[in-house]
Amino acid sequence: MKIKILNLILAEVAVFIAVSVAETSPLAIFIPTKFLYLIAVLPPVFLLLGRNPFDFPLFVVLMAIASAKVLANSEIFYSLLDALYYLGFRSLSENLNSMFLAYKSNLNLSTLSALVVLFCVAQIAWNIEDKLRELKLEIGYPLAVLGIVAFAIYLFYPLVLSIQAYGFPLLFLGLIGVALIMVATYLLAST
């Protein structure tokens, strides 16, 4: 029950964050964002149905709402607008372009990070509860560790990403480097 309540709280916080982001995104032009708060009803409903209050479908909906700004920076989106323009929907294409262009290069990495971190915490807590009960272990310690790890990731991950080299985050370059070393080692060992 503790985990259900925790996940309910996490879900509600995630809904609040996602809708707050939506208010400042191009989505606000199309939908009255106040109505988006109705999504907050979903977690208690899931809870009453005996499901995880912060379920994957809810996460997808929240990510869709929060990532409206993402479209403003998406080359694919602009290519679709070009396609519309070419197909004859010129005014629609131009309108959409002018709306989204205003939000270009306005990154919301920390908001998306918060949503993903909250969802990960909810998923881990939900999945380990039964297993810990089987092992006759208190859930307190793992939850405390989970909280600390989640907070550290939320705090430091965007910072780590901001360290760049040759125009790419140093973290990704490092990961690519490690992967290449492993592939090279495997190839050398197998020949």
Partner: peptide, 29 residues
């Protein structure tokens, strides 16, 4: 892993750096 792959796939489709970046978060756990 499913969440990570979902975000990565979405990020690649929309060519979104942010989504690709956050797709690594579940793997960090």
């Amino acid at each position: 892993v499913s969440v990570a792959l979902f975000l990565l796939g979405w990020g690649i489709i929309t060519t979104s750096y942010e989504l690709i970046a956050v797709s690594a978060i579940p793997l960090l756990f």
